[in-house]
């Protein structure tokens, strides 16, 4: 569904070139290219990645700022969305990470809103999905990782290292557990980023593979039904992955706030 027309064109193009009936190019939708001209991609080039990210900013601005501009005591629709998001994240942070983590609300809300908006914008047909790129998700996960580590050391100093020293375990086991804890701590940004990027990438690629099958007349009804079902699943995944990314951020933040086991 997403980018089906574009893919059909690509498939036809490639089929003409190679003389084949069925060609898969599920990754063409992820190509980063300059938005307004041809040529190489430099550091500051205005690419499709930049366009879709800035569109996410515009959407967030419309919902969060323009929606609440009336400051109505009885909220309208857009203001309700903003207030629901605020209440949702406020509750999530205070439930998972504790009340003293509430100053991080803007930071966590930034991550959540960017991810959920980029995921949902990426589901528009012919769009580009920022969060399917590991460059983006790794940056997000590293930002979380660095924030957690810095906050942990600033709040607790060297006591933050107690996170790795499981004092409830028997003494001979503790060095082993410490090694495991250190490894899992450094694995966190990897799994954190690949979970988000991989889910989005996999969903879009699978939809594109089904779209290629739709070019075969015999199985096209099945393929189109499959695309429809997968699209519904992907809408769910887009929201759930943003939720999971945010809640794991809160869980990690709790470690930084209360490092002792």
């Amino acid at each position: 569904m997403a980018g089906e027309a574009q893919h059909g064109k690509d498939a036809g193009h490639a089929a003409a070139e190679h003389g084949e009936g069925l060609v898969f190019h599920p990754f063409d939708q992820f190509i980063v290219k300059p938005m307004f001209h041809d040529g190489p991609v430099g550091l500051f080039t205005f690419t499709n990645a930049a366009f879709w990210m800035l569109l996410a900013v515009a959407v967030i601005f419309c919902v969060m700022v323009l929606g609440s501009s009336k400051r109505a005591v009885i909220p309208g629709r857009a203001q309700s969305i903003g207030e629901l998001l605020y209440g949702f994240l406020h509750k999530m942070i205070s439930d998972v990470a504790g009340k003293e983590a509430l100053p991080f609300l803007p930071y966590i809300m930034t991550l959540f809103l960017f991810i959920v908006t980029a995921n949902l914008l990426g589901l528009l047909p012919l769009s580009y999905t920022s969060t399917s790129h590991f460059a983006v998700t790794v940056t997000l996960a590293l930002a979380v990782f660095i924030t957690i580590t810095v906050v942990g050391f600033v709040k607790h100093g060297t006591k933050f290292l107690g996170l790795f020293w499981v004092s409830s375990a028997p003494l001979p086991l503790r060095p082993v557990l410490a090694a495991v804890e250190v490894i899992s701590y450094f694995i966190r940004p990897v799994s954190h980023s690949i979970r988000l990027g991989g889910n989005i990438l996999a969903g879009h690629a699978v939809i594109k593979v089904f779209a290629a099958f739709a070019s075969i007349t015999l199985i096209s009804p099945v393929a189109i039904l499959g695309i429809t079902a997968l699209y519904g699943l992907e809408v769910l995944v887009a929201v759930v992955q943003a939720y999971v990314f945010t809640i794991l951020t809160c869980v990690y933040l709790k470690d930084a706030m209360h490092p002792s086991h």
Partner: peptide
Amino acid sequence: SGSADGMPQLCADWFGNQVFWLILTLVAIF
């Protein structure tokens, strides 16, 4: 032919651009 060569996610030439715009975006949203 204009198709992706390998996984676009692993193309190092595109990392800088995405990270730059991502940081700009996140700062703006923040």
